[in-house]
């Protein structure tokens, strides 16, 4: 039984490793199909052939794809992502502090949205088809159906423009007191939490409702089990796997949300850097940022799957 479990988890890790390889290769492949672009971007259209050739040599672009891939991979393994094509500074140095800010933002939002949506999701599954459930359903359906920036803009409009309560722009650099900290972070964190909340609520509700419709729940009712025991002892242990999975999947939508929120609030995080890099086609920076995001995402999904595997009931593990 236990060997079986180890095998399952091992297989999951193997899948994660495969995905990681896929991600790394894809990121490299996409950013290298048009090798001319880097020099174009740096030197402009009118550059002399000699200048281009020299540039290509400097950047190592005249070597074979495999050699370049190897050097690039070697660099990543040493946290060395190359230099920005825009300003020539080390990409790793640019990312460092911004990554910290982004993780802070994402972490704070998750800390708000996860408990709230677990509560909303589980309770609306329990009180399925009541007015409460309908209201939650409609609101969350509306929220998953609009792009992230809409929610963020509405938040800015209401809190900053209408109510003048909070600064619309996050000025993390000048945070000196708790009060400032709260007001600088509140808007982005609240918007990001809202963005992820809706989907998490919906998926949690679906997972819980599925469990609650199982025959063994009806059986427990027929044994005279009360509502609290029914939820805690009979439903939660079976729903926990799907719920964790739902939460992890929604947290990954947080990664998408982070990009939009950081731009709306000009929050000094990694996504702002990436979006600017995309506009200016600064490939090394884009590569590095994409890798950071993808690895985080991979980590989340793998973690969720392993929790699901661990929560499978005995005798059901396949």
């Amino acid at each position: 039984m236990n060997r079986h479990l180890v095998l399952l988890i091992g297989r999951r890790f193997l899948a994660a490793a495969t995905s990681l390889v896929f991600v790394v290769v894809t990121v490299f492949a996409i950013t290298n199909v048009l090798p001319g672009d880097a020099t174009d971007a740096l030197l402009g259209q009118g550059a002399t052939p000699q200048a281009v050739a020299a540039m290509r040599h400097n950047l190592g672009l005249d070597r074979s794809v495999f050699v370049r891939f190897w050097f690039w991979l070697w660099g990543i393994l040493h946290a060395e992502f190359g230099n920005s094509l825009l300003n020539g500074l080390s990409v790793a140095d640019a990312i460092g502090p911004r990554l910290h800010n982004s993780l802070l933002l994402a972490g704070a939002s998750a800390a708000v949205s996860v408990p709230v949506s677990l509560f909303l999701g589980v309770t609306s599954a329990i009180w399925k088809d009541t007015v409460y459930d309908r209201v939650v359903s409609i609101l969350t359906l509306g929220m998953v159906s609009v792009p992230e920036f809409v929610i963020a803009t509405i938040a800015v409009y209401v809190f900053a423009v209408r109510l003048h309560l909070l600064p619309a722009l996050a000025d993390v650099g000048s945070v000196h007191s708790l009060r400032q900290f709260l007001s600088a972070f509140f808007m982005p964190v609240a918007s990001l939490a809202l963005v992820t909340l809706a989907q998490m609520v919906r998926m949690t509700r679906a997972a819980m409702a599925d469990t609650l419709s199982a025959p063994y729940i009806e059986m427990a009712l027929l044994k005279g089990v009360g509502p609290i025991r029914l939820i805690l002892v009979h439903a939660i242990p079976n729903a926990i796997g799907p719920i964790v999975n739902a939460v992890a999947l929604s947290l990954s939508s947080l990664l998408g949300g982070v990009v939009v929120i950081e731009v709306v609030f000009t929050y000094p995080g990694i996504s702002g850097l990436m979006v600017d890099a995309v506009s200016s086609r600064d490939v090394p920076t884009v590569q590095a940022c994409a890798l950071v995001f993808c690895v985080t995402y991979l980590f989340l999904t793998t973690f969720a799957d392993i929790v699901t595997i661990l929560s499978l009931p005995r005798g059901r593990k396949t």
Binding site: P215, L222, G226, P237
Partner: peptide, 24 residues
């Protein structure tokens, strides 16, 4: 109702395979 279920009157379900909670 709850107080008589399982105490005064009890139930044997059609498909025991799904009526037992797999996690307990």
């Amino acid at each position: 109702c709850r107080s008589i279920r399982g105490r005064i009157i009890s139930y044997v379900a059609q498909n025991a395979g799904s009526a037992f909670n797999p996690a307990l």
